[in-house]
Amino acid sequence: MDKKVPLMADVAGQSDRPEILFWVGCAGSFDPRAQKVTKAFVQILNASKISYAVLGKEEQCTGDPARRAGNEFLFQMLALQNIQTLNTHNVSKIVTTCPHCFNVLKNDYPALGGHYEVIHHTQLIQSLLDDGRLKIAGGSFTGKKITYHDSCYLGRANGVYEAPREILSQIEGDLVEMERNRTNGLCCGAGGAQMFKEDEPGQKRINIERTEEALKTNPDIIAVNCPFCLTMLTDGMTASNKSEEIMVLDLSELIIQSIKA
């Protein structure tokens, strides 16, 4: 990263308040693989000259895994504190690279008194491309077959199917759909706090089922929009001994390879 990442606490008092808050999330902050996505997205934010800031140490988990697990007390504790932080900084618009954070901030926080305009990073990228603030050149992915995995919380939970596909078409990748896509997309197996526990007894792991389906498209790249899908499908590739040939990448990692200087 060439530019310093601004902290909300430092810039909130300034006259030109940041246009948007980048909510990094637990995975984006701590998971080494997801950190790369965070940095890629920061690069995009910088390239498009949008004014943004992050909460840094003031950010806490949104509480999504606690709520979906059933632990409402814990969720309320985290969410109410986050809402306090966000309101102190007068935040009105949030972007996040995690569809779970996106969903809970957008749909669950209002009932607790947190009202924000929340968008997912694929939506922001698409609008930056649309209004010309972000300029990319096609060609980096010519002849590369890319399959796109819909995350449940961006897709079915919030009906966002086209923004990520729009982006893929702009980088001129050769998009090949899996059999189950969009509303019929198959979960990677991580949602509902499954990420943090062992599977119940069964015949197969869900991420293996999805990986096999992705492999059927013969892809060079599997594009995702969620740090947990990223882990699940990367694990799936490793289990199928395909991690050398096929890359699992977040959409922002594809974009930075096409950014025009």
């Binding site: 902290l7 637990c26 902050s29 701590f30 998971d31 840094g56 950010e59 988990c61 985290l78």
Partner: peptide
Amino acid sequence: GSVWQVSAARDAWI
């Protein structure tokens, strides 16, 4: 306040 017990600070990626 994070899903994993980690020693690093939340902004250590910066």
